[in-house]
Simulated assay, not measured.
Amino acid sequence: MKYPIAIEPGDDATAWGVVVPDLPGCFSAADNGIDDAIENAKEAIALWIEDAIANSETIPKPSCITELQKSGEYDGWIWAIAEVDPALVDDTIERINITLPRRILALLDRRAKSAGESRSGYIAHMTLMQ
């Protein structure tokens, strides 16, 4: 997924500001230039999407930069694309094979049972809690 981002240039005294117009409230900043601003925007987008999914909200599709530029809201800003892994919004079930020591597997199973979840459900739940 490729989201357009608007980057407000910074300098030695001011951070580079980043806004993701398609994702309300999604913004970021960087101290060390445009490359860091884009990387930080990718992280902000991923966190925004994770939060939206956790709250059962719809994930807006990315807009076209030229359409966003027409608003004039970010005149003088630099436009770029922040590409994030589409797996962030993919809920396709996938079977995996992992290797764990038996004692860890036993502990995992006890904790899953105590939480009233399956092994897979418990692993997913604990991952999302981070």
Rank of each mutant, 00 (worst) to 15 (best):
D91S: 15
Q69M: 11
A37C: 12
M126S: 08
L108E: 00
A41E: 02
E43R: 10
D90M: 09
G17K: 03
S71A: 12
V18F: 08
A54I: 10
L107K: 11
D12K: 14
S63P: 00
A124V: 08
A80D: 15
L47C: 10
S63G: 06
D91M: 15
D22L: 07
A41K: 01
D36P: 01
D75H: 12
D35F: 06
G76T: 15
G121T: 06
A52H: 00
A44S: 02
L47V: 06
G116I: 06
A44Q: 01
I45R: 02
A41S: 02
A106D: 10
I96W: 08
D12Y: 10
L68W: 03
D35Q: 09
A29I: 02
L68V: 09
A44F: 00
T127D: 01
P21Q: 00
P101R: 03
V84C: 10
E94M: 12
I93Y: 08
D31C: 09
S28R: 02
D90N: 15
L23D: 00
L128H: 15
D51T: 14
A112H: 03
I65A: 04
D51N: 11
A115E: 13
I123A: 13
P60W: 05
V84P: 11
A54P: 07
V89R: 07
A54L: 09
K61S: 13
L68K: 01
T66Y: 09
E83N: 15
V89Y: 02
N32R: 04
E73T: 14
V18H: 02
S120C: 02
L100E: 08
L108M: 00
A15N: 07
L107W: 07
V20S: 00
A115C: 12
P101V: 06
L68T: 02
T14W: 13
A87Q: 13
G121E: 04
T14I: 12
E39R: 14
I53P: 00
P24A: 03
S28W: 00
N40G: 07
N55E: 12
D22N: 10
A87P: 05
